[in-house]
């Protein structure tokens, strides 16, 4: 018993010392003590009250914190990683120390990414997602981790990351888009998160959707419907689709197609556009909007789009419903598309 109190006293003294000086070495030492304190692992529970009393949130050694992050003693090595990261820069350290545990929660979520997890901007954006209880069913911690992993593998950089693909917006900006979209659009926005988590081109397409619906927020009211599909009825791949109910003239749905591609018209364009025109809800060409990623294309070669449609099979039903006046011919329909090209196809 005497030995126990002696160890306890030493430990407390040392932790208070850590709290006072907070040097990396000291914290490291604290951690080592904890790690070495296997012998007092069980009695550590009795330390909780003492540690809480001293509110050691900054050094995150309290068993309360350890428990809340599901990091009992095996988690000490994670805490050591945090301690190591504390040396990265003062911004990171200040962020961790000033966010009352939320920064650590975000840091922990990004633990798999040694550079990204030290980026304050990304941590802040990740915290916005993790702390927003209203969107936990749309983008969970696991979703966030998966999204960051896919984004990182695409080369999305954090602000303090030395490497990455400068073509993409920063990681924090994309995470902010996701938080904004999930908050505004609700459950339907899961499709965008799913798209991001798919990886490869799916991720790229979803990044563009998330960005566009935020930048052009007025075009996308909160009742907009998002959908992630891997195949269409034509068996050509689609990504995230967006429908804005009654978005045209207040009484017709608008169907958005987002394309983040280098080649325009994209492969399969004509087939896909004919399918769009064939949608039962569509009675007017202006219900179709194709948005191309302005980071990849500067302009759209109108004649190439028209030529592609000239070569496509367009059913009489489609022609009958869209050509309102005069002969119901394919030529008349394509002329309408030609005229309305700038109302249908956009670079954003």
């Amino acid at each position: 018993m005497k030995t126990y109190f002696s160890i306890l006293f030493k430990l407390l003294s040392f932790i208070l010392y850590c709290y006072t000086f907070q040097s990396s070495t000291v914290i490291d030492s604290c951690l080592e003590i904890c790690a070495d304190a296997k012998c007092i692992h069980s009695p550590l529970d009795s330390l909780k009250g003492v540690l809480d009393e001293y509110n050691h949130t900054q050094v995150l050694l309290s068993s309360k914190k350890l428990d809340s992050y599901h990091m009992p003693l095996p988690g000490v090595c994670i805490m050591k990683a945090l301690d190591d990261d504390m040396n990265f820069n003062s911004s990171f350290k200040d962020h961790i120390n000033s966010t009352n545990g939320n920064g650590v929660k975000a840091w922990d979520a990004l633990i798999a990414h040694p550079l990204i997890r030290k980026d304050v901007a990304t941590l802040t954006s990740a915290s916005k997602i993790l702390d927003n209880t209203g969107i936990v069913n749309i983008i969970s911690k696991t979703d966030l981790q998966s999204a960051v992993q896919k984004l990182a593998s695409k080369g999305v950089r954090c602000r303090t990351c030395a490497s990455g693909n400068p073509f993409y917006r920063y990681m924090d900006e994309i995470l902010d888009d996701l938080e904004h979209g999930a908050t505004k659009f609700g459950d339907s926005y899961k499709s965008v998160v799913t798209g991001i988590k798919q990886g490869n081109n799916f991720t790229e397409g979803a990044i563009f959707v998330a960005d566009a619906v935020k930048r052009y927020g007025d075009d996308f009211p909160s009742n907009s419907v998002f959908e992630f599909t891997t195949k269409t009825t034509a068996d050509n791949i689609r990504r995230v689709d967006v429908k804005v109910p009654n978005g045209f003239n207040g009484n017709k749905d608008v169907f958005f197609e987002f394309k983040s591609v280098l080649d325009v018209p994209p492969s399969g364009f004509a087939t896909q556009f004919v399918k769009d025109m064939d949608l039962p809800d569509v009675t007017d060409l202006n219900q179709l909007k194709w948005w191309f990623d302005g980071k990849k294309v500067n302009s759209l070669p109108k004649q190439d789009f028209i030529d592609a449609l000239e070569g496509a099979t367009i059913s009489q039903d489609i022609i009958n419903k869209l050509v309102k006046t005069g002969p119901k011919t394919k030529e008349a329909l394509i002329d309408l598309i030609d005229d309305d090209f700038d109302l249908i196809f956009f670079v954003k």
Binding site: V225, E227, T229, T232, D241, K243, D281
Partner: peptide
């Protein structure tokens, strides 16, 4: 799969 692109006339 169900989709708002797979509707009815």
């Amino acid at each position: 799969e169900k989709s708002f692109r797979r509707g009815l006339d």
